[in-house]
């Protein structure tokens, strides 16, 4: 506790001071940070990344889990999807380079299928497409995690309920939407929060593949923090950390409020 909380309060204090002389500057650091181009870009990208990834991950995860829950080989297939979670980011770097370079597998595959002519080859990491590579990495890594959570949710719905619905003549689809789905709202909340927080870890792959200054479409807050740290711009970091921390806190609280209200109904 002492290691985490007190230092953070110190950071809050510092966010109002200049870095070196520690003079009181009021809200100036916050002004500088919000006016900073890099900060705006990073916030924009991070928000965009979250808005694209979360619905995609949660939706695809739910769909696959529902399909999977009908099969017998759940354990085995689940393990296949969990596997990327265990792959250290560093070992993936090489593969990513082989996949997404200008002459990599993705382009080779696309030209092989005749979808791409040789003049159209692009280096995925150096263009707008870098953002989508990042999205792909995130989904690849976290799909198994999400599926485990969804499956736990699906199986916690008592089979008496679904069987009763079946007896009453509900089709499989109806059964899902009217019996199982309403019971998954609790899972939805936790999956959203956990996926949201895990999305910050995508920095690992991003950094290892593309370095400190990747293509601007995938310059995230994490890159910014890291670069400010390297340059010892501590006052900016303090102000930005306070902002990001507060926003995250607010998001979690809002989600929790929504969920509580849902439950009380």
């Amino acid at each position: 506790m002492v290691f985490v909380l007190l230092p953070f309060l110190d950071v809050v204090r510092r966010s109002f001071l200049t870095a070196v002389t520690e003079e009181w500057t009021g809200l100036r650091n916050y002004g500088i940070v919000w006016g900073n181009q890099a900060f705006r870009l990073a916030v924009k990208n991070t928000v965009r990344f979250t808005l694209v990834c979360l619905p995609l991950l949660i939706g695809v995860g739910l769909f696959l889990s529902v399909q999977l829950s009908r099969l017998k080989e759940i354990q085995f297939i689940k393990s296949l999807f969990l596997f990327p979670l265990a792959m250290p980011a560093a070992t993936v770097v090489l593969i990513w380079k082989m996949l997404f370079s200008r002459q990599g597998f993705l382009n080779a595959g696309l030209t092989g299928l005749g979808l791409l002519s040789e003049e159209q080859l692009i280096d995925y990491m150096g263009t707008e497409a870098a953002f989508w590579v990042l999205v792909f990495s995130y989904i690849w890594k976290n799909l198994g995690y999400t599926m485990v959570l969804w499956l736990a949710g699906i199986f916690s719905v008592s089979s008496d309920l679904t069987e009763a619905a079946m007896v009453d003549g509900a089709g499989r689809r109806q059964c899902f939407w009217h019996v199982i789905f309403p019971n998954l709202k609790g899972s939805l909340y936790t999956i959203t929060v956990l996926s949201f927080l895990n999305s910050f870890k995508v920095f690992r792959e991003a950094y290892l593949v593309a370095g400190s200054y990747p293509h601007e479409s995938m310059y995230l807050l994490q890159h910014l923090f890291n670069n400010w740290f390297v340059n010892l711009e501590l006052d900016k970091m303090a102000a930005a950390a306070v902002c990001v921390g507060m926003v995250l806190f607010a998001v979690i609280l809002v989600l929790q409020k929504l969920w509580d209200r849902e439950e009380r109904r």
Binding site: F8, R14, L197, L221, F225, F229, A238
Partner: peptide
């Protein structure tokens, strides 16, 4: 209260606590 604080801290990404850890 302490436990709630714990959970919140657990949820914060490294970037937010990076500076405070550094100072310590």
């Amino acid at each position: 209260l302490l436990f709630t604080l714990y959970i919140v801290l657990m949820l914060m990404p490294f970037q937010v606590t990076m500076l405070s850890s550094y100072l310590v």
